[in-house]
């Protein structure tokens, strides 16, 4: 999971990201990362209950990839969900909902 193109645009340039630890159990809505941008600091919440299976350490080195490629190299974490999560959206599904395509 990551943040949307709209979110990265609102945040402005990201300079710093911190993740929760791999292996941590999270509930839906728990913080999985905090993002420091030039403008503000924001927390990123888990969209589902589960376990953090991986974090994208490459964005720690290269935080600008969150702005440049939010749906690709700027991903945040992998969450291994518990149970069904039908309401989750991928980037294409999100774009459809907001009417971009």
């Amino acid at each position: 999971m990551g943040i949307t193109d709209h979110a990265q645009s609102e945040l402005t340039d990201v300079v710093f990201v911190e993740f929760e630890k791999v292996g941590k159990k999270v509930a839906k809505g728990d913080v999985v990362a905090s993002v420091e941008s030039v403008k503000t600091v924001s927390e990123v919440y888990s969209p589902a209950a589960g376990e953090i299976a991986a974090v994208n350490s490459s964005v720690t080195e290269k935080p600008e990839s969150i702005n440049q490629d939010p749906y690709g190299s700027g991903w945040f974490v992998v969450i291994k969900p518990e149970g069904e999560n039908e309401e989750l959206l991928d980037a294409a599904g999100y774009r459809k909902i907001i009417g971009e395509e």
């Binding site: 402005t12 340039d13 300079v15 030039v38 403008k39 600008e64 702005n67």
Partner: peptide, 8 residues
């Protein structure tokens, strides 16, 4: 305008 794409 706050920015036109990237403040940095």
């Amino acid at each position: 305008p706050l920015h036109y794409g990237s403040i940095i």
